Amino acid sequence: MASSAAVWLVILVAVIAANLPFVNERLFVVGPKRDPKHLGWRLLELVLLWGLTLGVGFALEARIGQIQVQGWQFYAAFGCLFLTLAFPGFVWRYLKRHRG
């Protein structure tokens, strides 16, 4: 896989993973359905999916070449990007009026 394709794959995984806690009522996507799922569960899922997305990125980086050592700044920036990508799901869940 080319490095540019790997980058786009990680971005796609990040967009899907960031919005998944807000569009799904099941715990961790496959668990029991909770109606309504509280914000604490959604934030826990968001953190775990953030870690899963990091794992996918590191796995793709290892497949392409050597993994580079990252400092705390990388994780902070990726966390902010992940929260930014989660904004549409948050808006859909908490700020949009749902009828019925």
Rank of each mutant, 00 (worst) to 15 (best):
S4C: 06
A77Q: 13
G51E: 08
H38W: 13
G71Y: 11
F90V: 13
V23R: 06
K96G: 01
I16W: 03
L9P: 01
V29C: 04
Q73A: 11
A18C: 04
A59G: 04
E61A: 09
R97L: 14
R26D: 06
W8M: 15
V30E: 09
K33A: 14
H38L: 15
K96L: 15
F90E: 04
F58M: 13
T53F: 03
L60F: 05
L48R: 01
I16D: 00
A86I: 04
T53H: 00
V56P: 00
F90Q: 12
L27K: 03
K96D: 06
P88C: 02
R34E: 14
L9H: 05
A2T: 13
V91R: 07
V13L: 07
A86H: 01
L52C: 07
K96W: 15
G31H: 06
W92N: 10
G57I: 09
A77P: 05
L39R: 10
G57F: 07
F87W: 14
L9Y: 03
L27G: 01
V47P: 03
A18I: 00
L52T: 05
L43I: 14
L60R: 04
S3M: 15
I64E: 08
R63Y: 14
V29Y: 10
R93Q: 10
F78V: 07
L44Q: 05
R34Q: 12
V91Q: 06
H38F: 12
A86G: 00
A59I: 08
